[in-house]
Amino acid sequence: MNTPRSIREIFGFFFFLGRRTGKTRVFALLGLIPVVLAVVVRIVLHGRSGDIAAVFTEILMVFFLQFYIVILALFYGTSVTAEEVENRTLSYLITRPLPKPAIVLGKYAAYALLMFAMVAVSLTLSFFVMNAARLREPALYLTFLSYLGVLGLGILAYTAFFTFLGTVLKRAILVGLVFGFGWENVIQYFPGSTQRFSIVHYLKSLLPYRPAPGGGGKGVALLLFRLEPTSTLLAVLALIGIGAAFLALACWLFRMKEYLYEE
């Protein structure tokens, strides 16, 4: 089979398998947290200004951007190759007429779509519950789409990075946790070019910038604070580049590396 067809078949198999796992059920439930939060805030904010809802929406985005997509990408990305080795099921894949990179790419695509579906459902519900009072404003839908797009790009970039980690390291989860919740959370606040060594910097650069009412041009989003955002085009290119580079590395390593099961 050629590589595109192999990727398609691997994608189909693992998209099907991925929906069945306990991991997916747990993470789907985790996605209900912002929805519940949105319902609570809506009840508390009943009849109040839509601007406060927008602030809370940004707080929700912190959950999505700095927790939900990172933890999803960490667990699904590292498992692209590592779970096959840990569960010793790799034999079922590499003794088939499939190019090894197709295994990585197909599983990556299957898991990325699965994650995007979970994030999209959670974001849609929480966003529109939170902003129920502003449903007639066309700008609201643009904001929603830009949030969804940013999260989608985040999933692609983070998952590629964690796929690479899982291909290289035996205990990739630990290193991934340090990267996702240590490095990413700290380095983005470094001034100058240092912040550009984090993925979240480019994601935040893409978020709609909403000046505070009477804030003299300053952004209100404390948690979504960004120092020196990269331009939209460059940020998109950087995220796509990060994703492509780490995926290519993961494919190359998976092809060259020999995986031994632990006895």
């Binding site: 067809r5 398998l17 069945r20 034999s91 499939l98």
Partner: peptide, 26 residues
Amino acid sequence: FCPENDVFYEDVTGWEFLTGLLRFYG
């Protein structure tokens, strides 16, 4: 190839396991 280890994708049926792996032959 039939591996020695008693390992599977556990959350699928025997039918799904076989049809899934047969997809890889085109």
